[in-house]
Each structure stands twice: as C-alpha cells, then as structure tokens.
Amino acid sequence: MRGGDRGSATAEFAVVVPAVVLVIALTAGCLAAAGRQVRLEQGVAQAARLAARGEPSDRVSAIVAAVAGGEIDAVSDDGDLVCVSATAPARVPLPVPPLRARSCALAGGR
C-alpha cells in the first residue's frame, strides 16, 4: 500500500476541470462571435441592396440592427455602387475589437 499517492487523482482532477471548462467557454464564445460576423455580413449586404434602391436611411439602418445588432458607420457612393459599412459588438467576454463588415450593391438595381 502506497500512502504517498493517496488523493493525487482527486487533486489532478481539480486542476484539470477548470482548464477544460475555460477552453469550452472560449470555444463557445469564438463560435458565437463567428456567427455574429456572418449575420453582420448578411445584414450589411441586405442594407447595401436597400440603399442602392433608394430606400430611406432608417430602414437601411434597421435591417443591420435587426439581423446582427449592429450599427451603420457609413453609406457611400463608389462610382455605380452604393457601399454600406457597419460594426457590431462581438459580445464575448474577451477584449476583442468590434466586428466590421462592408458590402456594395449596384445603384438603382432591382
């Protein structure tokens, strides 16, 4: 009988479990941020199409807010294109910059 190893499995388990939980939480946070980035890109693409058709700016802003919880930074003309840039918070408990997306659509398109 070895008395010196008694309880070592419990101690190792107590050290490993918080690390595993932290890795799982960070993975879930990164996946959530990636999903929000995809939604932001889709919202900005839809907003660019609406702006190119001449829709009111409040409707253009509302689509980005509804789809991704973001805000429009700029709507600009670039030749025949209307471009929309927007940002949204990543909403992960890490010091990460806000998510950004930009999309353009042909002006006057239907």
Rank of each mutant, 00 (worst) to 15 (best):
M1T: 14
M1P: 13
R2K: 15
G3K: 12
G3M: 09
G3T: 12
G4E: 15
G7I: 07
G7N: 05
G7K: 06
A9N: 08
T10L: 13
T10W: 06
A11V: 15
F13T: 15
F13E: 13
F13S: 12
V15G: 13
V16F: 14
V16I: 14
V16M: 14
V16S: 15
V17K: 09
V17N: 08
P18I: 00
A19L: 15
V20S: 07
V21H: 02
V21S: 05
L22Y: 02
L22G: 04
I24H: 07
I24N: 01
I24D: 07
A25T: 08
A25G: 14
G29W: 01
L31F: 06
L31K: 05
A34N: 10
A34M: 11
A34C: 10
A34V: 10
G35D: 11
R39S: 11
R39C: 09
L40Y: 00
L40G: 01
E41N: 14
E41A: 11
Q42S: 14
Q42P: 12
Q42L: 12
V44W: 00
V44H: 02
A45I: 06
A45D: 15
A47Q: 06
A47P: 15
A47Y: 00
A47C: 05
L50V: 09
P56V: 05
S57L: 06
D58L: 03
R59C: 03
S61G: 14
S61Y: 02
A62V: 09
A62M: 05
A65M: 07
A66V: 04
V67E: 08
A68E: 05
A68K: 03
G69W: 00
G69A: 07
G69C: 10
G70I: 01
G70L: 00
E71V: 13
I72N: 02
D73I: 08
A74D: 15
S76G: 10
S76D: 10
D78L: 07
D78P: 11
D78S: 11
G79A: 08
V82G: 06
V82A: 04
V82R: 05
C83A: 09
C83V: 12
V84I: 09
S85L: 09
S85Y: 03
S85H: 03
A86H: 08
A88L: 02
A90F: 00
R91H: 12
R91C: 08
V92N: 05
P93T: 06
L94D: 08
P95N: 01
P95L: 00
V96A: 06
V96W: 01
P98C: 01
P98G: 01
L99D: 01
L99A: 01
A101G: 13
A101M: 04
A101F: 03
S103Q: 07
S103I: 04
S103C: 06
C104P: 14
C104N: 09
L106R: 15
G108Q: 05
